[in-house]
Design a protein around this nucleic acid. Structure first.
Lengths: 334, 334
DNA sequence: TTCATCATAGCAAACGTTTGTTAAATATGC
DNA sequence: GCATATTTAACAAACGTTTGCTATGATGAA
């Protein structure tokens, strides 16, 4: 531990007052005269006193600390959410423990446990497995992309089903008819809901979702590339790809480039998230926008409410944001 | 705080043993018989006991926690460094506090302070201002991109001067002669050293560094775009841009696209960092590669050594990694 | 003057651990 | 069988805070 030798007692000794007075002065509580308060503040400053938050946390039962578990910090979707979370937390004098699970259920569980041991005030996490493990945890807890209108936990998320619907409908409107879908993880809740929306759009066009054309890849550029390869290798005619996030879409684009498939003429591609690189002039990926940074801010704000209202049972709060289709140049104009 | 009501004392009471035995059993220390140890472990497990790291830290004076302060988590350079740090820390049963300063010296200082209060065992930071403020801090501390062979602190970094030299020399070899430079922040240590390398390369070609053609932008795509605009607005003939990181280079590319300047024919562009997006087929940015993830791992490893050897004064350790030029399609073939 | 009121400040317990010291119980050596 | 060594377990202090309670002294009212 970074050696801060001087404690409240040292300041007390120096001044010849009791250390309870120091505590009260430092925390702006009453019970100290203005005179001694000033004297204490000045001396604490002069001696370079830094309160020990471990001790504070121990007695207050509040650590001013929250844990954040995400699968991949270099996926801009999570990167921006985390940026929103850190900004919101610092505005509220909170610090965050960043945990990166690397899409491993085991590591996620381990992290969850150590966060408990660190006595964080709350946890925000993107669950890699199915999140039923967290079903009966009563602690302040926000699960990213968990949504179920029948359950009574708070949630903040984009309407994924609607996003999936928008993306698919757009492809169909452009005239594409043989759609392939590349998901990130089989049991990812957001993917599932996006696919549900896709199905709806297909049905509106009298088509149905061919599960043979739903490939499970991974949420990365390389994962998208490989999945696209697999998709085209199936022997079906494919003229459009809906990647469940922008990285997958980017990987699909890469595969098309390598294979001499022209986008958007032969094949249309749409992604999800609208990461900043998707808008680059060289890329101009058609995608579904999510307000990631704001999502992060709201996740933290909602968690903080849970932390503060731990006693009183407030009604559960479900914030749903609308996704927005960004039409760019990887889908042809109708 | 997440409510873990049960403590070591509860387990002790349940078993009718003293709580010091519990502690020793849990920590694998001697002084408990195998029999009672097993009994204790079993009961702790059964009761769902979770040790309180705040209390532990208080007595052990080790919090198993380090702070990381970076200016921008969505800059992939820092994103990958942080990924390296978190992986290394989790392998060593450490947790990290992530702090994002947003390029504000004030926030950086505030974060530094709260990390001290949280009693982290060490801090890894990218200093936004000049890092002289940290000169006489004796705590375990790794400053990203601080390097001075004359000072006795540990450091891990890529040879920035050599990287700048490589990039510039490449542009010159390609036949570009009117080079503009876009820096991120005026007093950024890494930029300064990259420019020093650039100057060296220019001089080898009988040219000198025209400070009028060194623009201070910011480390972002938009910052690069605006700086490029400014650069071309100066009235000098410009046929190449060396962006001090890939985001700046990407922004420059964007400006060229908007202005109908053809890359690499009319203007060559080289970046720095080699973020993953730079290699995309649509972009193929020529750039200088840094092993960011490895940098992060080594930063943590070196910090951990400092933490462990706090007493004994080990010789200072300076790890320097070689940058690597990646020639792609934003510079013309010679 | 006396008693009650009040502001100030000190004492000590508590938070949940770890660990040095001591006490009890068991084993060992002669 | 006794003294001694050794293992096992309990006690209590310590880590650096906060806070309820108590003590002190000053102030004010009757």
């Amino acid at each position: 531990m970074i050696p801060i030798s001087i404690t409240i007692k040292d300041v007390a000794r120096e001044l010849g007052v009791s250390y309870s007075s120091i505590s009260r002065a430092l925390n702006g509580k009453e019970g100290v005269s203005k005179e001694t308060r000033d004297k204490i503040l000045e001396m604490a400053e002069k001696m370079g006193y830094q309160p020990n938050d471990l001790a504070r946390g121990l007695v207050n039962k509040i650590s001013k600390t929250v844990g954040v578990i995400v699968p991949d910090i270099n996926n801009p979707f999570f990167g921006e959410i985390v940026a929103g979370i850190t900004d919101a937390s610092s505005e509220n004098e909170y610090n965050i423990f960043l945990c990166v699970s690397g899409w491993s259920v085991k590591r996620e569980k381990e992290y969850f446990n150590t966060l408990i041991q660190k006595r964080v005030d709350g946890i925000i996490l993107k669950s890699v497995g199915d999140y039923s493990d967290y079903e009966n945890i009563k602690s302040p807890l926000m699960i990213i992309e968990r949504y179920d209108r029948n359950q009574n936990y708070d949630s903040v998320e984009v309407d994924n089903e609607f996003g999936g619907y928008l993306a698919t409908k757009h492809l169909l409107e452009c005239g594409y008819r043989n759609l392939g879908f590349i998901s990130g993880r089989e049991d990812d809740s957001a993917c599932k809901r996006r696919l549900r929306g896709a199905k709806k759009a297909l049905e509106e066009y009298g088509l149905s979702l061919n599960t043979d054309l739903v490939i499970e890849g991974s949420f990365s550029i390389e994962g998208g590339r490989m999945a696209a390869k697999q998709l085209f290798g199936k022997g079906h005619p494919i003229d459009a790809i809906f990647g469940m996030n922008d990285l997958i879409a980017l990987g699909s684009l890469q595969y098309c480039d390598e294979s001499g498939i022209s986008v958007p003429d032969e094949v249309g591609v749409v992604g999800f998230d609208n990461i900043s690189y998707a808008g680059l002039p060289q890329i101009r990926l058609t995608t579904v926008h999510q307000p990631k940074y704001e999502l992060g801010k709201m996740l933290f704000a909602t968690l903080l409410e849970e932390i503060h209202n731990k006693e009183e049972k407030k009604p559960t709060k479900k914030i749903i944001l609308n996704p927005e289709l960004k039409i760019r140049k990887t889908t042809r104009t109708k």
